[in-house]
């Protein structure tokens, strides 16, 4: 058992090292090689624009369900009007970034791993290298930049749709008074909450890009490898997002304390 634990630890450290190396190579490539803006734009359309529906729907249902649950619990203490502010805080600080990242990891991370993985096993990555094109410049940088640009915007979109849904559920359906709902929402939601959402979106984008590109670039063993790459990319990036969210929650609470 100790041997197995040791082996798992070693493999995890090795994996983290590989991710760190890929991140370093990607950051370095952004400065030493020209960024292929046309590819970045294509990827922003693929990663950002085409993820909007899934992210908006996630935001709507999360905001709606959360607003309903908060109302059911809070109205017992006569605090039903706090639904808006509590939902907004939860969406900006936790639910918006985390759920958006999990959805994007499933939709985009899997696609990136499968696409690069297929290129790897069909020698297309080697063909790029044989033409003097660095795969990091051509494949990893455009996808990473696109994710880093798109994710904070997608998080903002999910939060916005969540808050609108919460308003519809609380005010239109459950009969919460509109004026106090909006006053609490305005008084207790601060720019720092939005900043937390955007920072988390940025960090989660880095995680999805690194894990998905790494899984793609390390794909081997033909079709079986291509089948495994997206699964691994989604599982590893999802778990990393959840773990990193805990770390960020504590770290960002120091930077943006909630007791204001």
């Amino acid at each position: 058992m100790i041997t197995a634990l040791g082996r798992t630890t070693m493999e995890s450290v090795q994996y983290l090292g590989q991710l760190g190396l890929l991140t370093w190579e990607t950051v370095k490539a952004m400065f030493v090689a020209p960024i292929r803006w046309r590819l970045v734009l294509q990827q922003i359309i693929e990663v950002g624009s085409r993820s909007q529906v899934v992210v908006a729907v996630t935001g709507v249902f999360t905001g709606a369900v959360f607003a309903a649950q908060i109302y059911f619990q809070f109205q017992r203490f006569g605090m039903g009007t706090a639904v808006g502010s509590v939902t907004a805080l939860a969406l900006f600080r936790e639910l918006g970034p985390t759920l958006t990242a999990l959805m994007v990891s499933g939709r985009v991370g899997a696609a990136i791993a499968a696409e690069i993985g297929t290129m790897k096993v069909t020698e297309q990555v080697d063909a790029l290298r044989s033409m003097g094109v660095h795969p990091i410049d051509y494949l990893v940088v455009p996808r990473s930049v696109a994710l880093i640009v798109s994710m904070p915007l997608l998080v903002a979109e999910a939060c916005a749709f969540g808050i609108i849904a919460s308003y519809v559920i609380a005010v239109q359906m459950l009969g919460v008074a509109e004026a106090p709902y909006l006053r609490y929402l305005n008084n207790y939601t601060h720019p720092s909450d939005v900043a937390i959402a955007l920072i988390k979106g940025f960090v989660f984008a880095v995680i999805i890009a690194c894990v998905a590109c790494h899984e793609g670039m390390e794909t081997a063993n033909g079709a079986a490898g291509v089948r495994r790459a997206p699964t691994r990319a989604v599982v590893i990036s999802s778990l990393s997002i959840l773990g990193m969210n805990l770390v960020l929650t504590f770290a960002l609470n120091i930077v943006f304390p909630s007791s204001r």
Binding site: M119, T122, E123, Q124, D126, A127, S130, G132
Partner: peptide, 16 residues
């Protein structure tokens, strides 16, 4: 170096 040399891959490796 690679720009002096061209390589035809076993699977042709066309960008699909």
């Amino acid at each position: 170096v690679r720009r002096k040399i061209g390589m035809l891959f076993q699977s042709a490796a066309l960008f699909d």
